[in-house]
Design a protein around this nucleic acid. Sequence first.
DNA 1: TCAAAAGTGTTCAGCGTACACCCATGC
DNA 2: GCATGGGTGTACGCTGAACACTTTTGA
Lengths: 242, 242
Amino acid sequence: MTSIPNSENINTWISELNSDAKAAISVDCVIFGYNEKELSVLQIECNMPPHEAKMSLIGDLVKSYETVDEAANRILEKITGLSDLYLEQVQTFSDPNRHPLGRVISVAYYSLIKTDKYELIDKEHKHLQWVPITSTEEMAFDHQQIMNLCYNRLKKRLRERPVGFSLLPKKFTLIQLQRLYEIILGIKLDKRNFRRKLKATGLLKDLGEVQQDVSHRPAKLYTFDYERYAEMKNSNVLKFDI
Amino acid sequence: MTSIPNSENINTWISELNSDAKAAISVDCVIFGYNEKELSVLQIECNMPPHEAKMSLIGDLVKSYETVDEAANRILEKITGLSDLYLEQVQTFSDPNRHPLGRVISVAYYSLIKTDKYELIDKEHKHLQWVPITSTEEMAFDHQQIMNLCYNRLKKRLRERPVGFSLLPKKFTLIQLQRLYEIILGIKLDKRNFRRKLKATGLLKDLGEVQQDVSHRPAKLYTFDYERYAEMKNSNVLKFDI
DNA sequence: TCAAAAGTGTTCAGCGTACACCCATGC
DNA sequence: GCATGGGTGTACGCTGAACACTTTTGA
């Protein structure tokens, strides 16, 4: 950035940069967890007045040497033990009164995780909790607003990009995939139309295998074709509209 | 936000908030100007080493008492003399080395303005310049990247929300409107199909007036129906897909 | 053989797209 | 009367949506 004319010279800049123009920067992550039954958000007990009774999102201050993306990944890895999770920056929140301890500007992210992968690590963090997205308990600070915005973004993305596959096992059935869409979007979908659409994307690989040990007709197993996806992105022919 | 478990207690927080965890926050605005011939971006000569020869976006530091939205509006009003411009937050940029004078985290916005409205005020700011979006001169800092991202966002928005009308006079012809879409999107559109689609939104009011003093068949004048738009947004029936 | 869930095709309406000619005005 | 740009309708293919029955397996 370059300052607007009136305050534009380097000396002004340097003194402003060292004055109270500085603020603390944090990252808040809406970590969506999916367990094939419901969509939840990972929350932590808030121990900060005046929000002691409420839950809040997972966040931390951004270090001086990292980008906000890096901070978000660091937080995620610390909490989940997993790296390379799907992660998307959503919006920056900056109400001067949003945080009780002073000015904290927060960059909101959301990420996606299979709840079962996480369970292992949860044991050491008892005050962490999966809260179903349908829960109406009010959250601390402006975290309710952040969560709602991220949920809306997720719903939009799910329909225009293949982000949902990161919430399923590598091998999945079409029924599992459909249920994922139905639960996250909160709507019912037509089985035949859904299958036709998904197959038309060309991003499903039929593994030629079927489910084992189910007491009904076993379903075929598919996997997401990451290579094909990379090709399509590169050549700009990706058509994904569910 | 609430810190992650290991560093979670208020004293840690307070000391971190007063330490070097703070950073300068700025807002950078991609101000798109449209003059019915081309789309330009308002840029300013950059006088900061090592970028002296380049142009940069309009920006400023965020004051301690304002939100980033407010900062963006303040900057816009100072530069253009206009308030209530269309304004949208796009993304936060935070590479620790993005700014030569130290850590400055920047929130990128774009806004839309009719170039002719602006011309009046430009006189006092000679080092400001409208640069056509098609220009390939490299910009200072990461401003090229910011501009590209904002331009892509604008193109997407233009097709899914009625944001383009703020770039036309109150009374406009369908040809003017189509030209606006063609220039911003950088594509050709079919006249008949474009008109059918736009009329189908129900957001155009036929004024029953025609152009004056043109040396050909005068075109009908329309206006954007803001009341209708507000109603549609409220009742969630807005369908706008150009 | 029954229960439970998987899998499969067709029809119809609406929408996007391609395309060519007549109309109103000023000069 | 001619040059200039404004304005209009139709046909076709594709896509989204609605909808019901057969298949495979384990118990």
